[in-house]
Amino acid sequence: MTMSVKSALEQRTAINYFDASKSLTEQQIEELVRLATLAPTAFNLQNWHFVAVQSDAAKQKLHAAAYKQQKVLDASVTFIVCGEIESHKNFDRVVKTLVERGGVSEADAAVWKGKVVATHENNPTTQHAEAFRSASLGAMALMLAAEEQGLASGPMSGFDPAAVSAAFDLPATRIPVMLVSVGYAAEGNYPQKPRLDVAQVLDIV
């Protein structure tokens, strides 16, 4: 299946009701995350992490932490999209891929790393802001990927971050930013809600 980005955006809607009888394969889940990680991040930090909640036991834990929203139980998988606030400390793994697969020289990669450290070290405001930006971009990319593959998705901000972190043993440096349920739509969902006219939300200067 091939769908334009325009079509994916125009057709996508936030799904509340999923067909609980249908599941996704591990390969489908991995492909969704692969596509999600093509979203941009500052300095190519890739400061995100995805937890795919698929098993019944894991769904029950997330259900409790997400104010018992039924879609967590019914969707094929719900992703906990996290932002990593200390990715600058692990930037060597990015440097390695830049040098080995990105054609970047070791000298240029070292300069790149220096800029990352300079902007992020001892700067919790930047760390948190970039983690939330990156996780949000990754979540949107994931939803578009799901739409292109004939799947439905529903983003959620309605959850207790502390409860999610505790239930899934997330380290303090890994912040749950958003939940995204993915699966097959059931009956009863609303179509995409009307948007304001562009003139109401745009200034061209």
Rank of each mutant, 00 (worst) to 15 (best):
A8Q: 13
S55T: 13
M1P: 11
D160G: 00
D74W: 00
V77S: 05
R34E: 13
K71H: 11
R34T: 05
Q27G: 06
A14R: 14
T126Y: 10
E147D: 08
R12V: 09
A199F: 03
L9E: 15
V77D: 01
A57L: 08
L62V: 00
P40G: 07
P124G: 00
V51L: 12
E31R: 07
V77W: 05
K22I: 08
R101Q: 13
L24R: 11
A146H: 14
A129P: 01
A135N: 02
L179D: 14
K6D: 15
F50Y: 05
R101G: 09
F43L: 06
T119L: 12
E187P: 05
I175F: 04
G83P: 09
A42E: 11
A135K: 00
E148W: 03
S21V: 07
Y17P: 12
S181E: 10
K59S: 00
T126K: 09
K115F: 07
L38Q: 10
S153Y: 13
L45W: 11
N44E: 13
F132D: 07
D203M: 05
S21E: 15
V51C: 06
T119K: 11
L62Q: 00
Q149A: 10
A118P: 07
L98G: 07
A139W: 02
L73F: 01
H63I: 00
V5K: 12
N16V: 02
S136V: 00
Q70D: 13
S7E: 15
R174F: 02
W48L: 03
M156Y: 09
K59F: 00
L62P: 01
D197G: 12
S136N: 03
N47E: 06
A141D: 10
D197P: 03
V205T: 09
V182G: 10
S23Q: 14
N123T: 02
N47Y: 04
T119F: 10
Q192L: 07
G188F: 02
A64L: 02
M143N: 14
R133C: 03
G114V: 02
A146E: 14
V182H: 13
Q11R: 12
A199M: 04
R174G: 01
S157L: 12
S157Q: 13
E100S: 10
V77A: 09
L179K: 06
F91Y: 15
H63W: 01
A162F: 02
I29G: 09
A109Y: 01
E31D: 13
N123F: 08
A20Q: 15
N123E: 07
T25S: 15
S4G: 15
K113L: 01
E147T: 12
V198G: 08
D197K: 03
E148G: 15
E187I: 04
L151V: 04
A75L: 03
A118Y: 03
G83M: 06
L45K: 07
V53T: 01
N44D: 13
V5R: 12
V180M: 06
E100Q: 13
K89D: 11
A129I: 04
S181Y: 05
S105H: 00
S76F: 08
K96S: 11
L137I: 02
K113N: 01
A146P: 11
P171M: 01
M1L: 07
E130V: 01
M156S: 09
R101S: 09
E106N: 05
R34F: 06
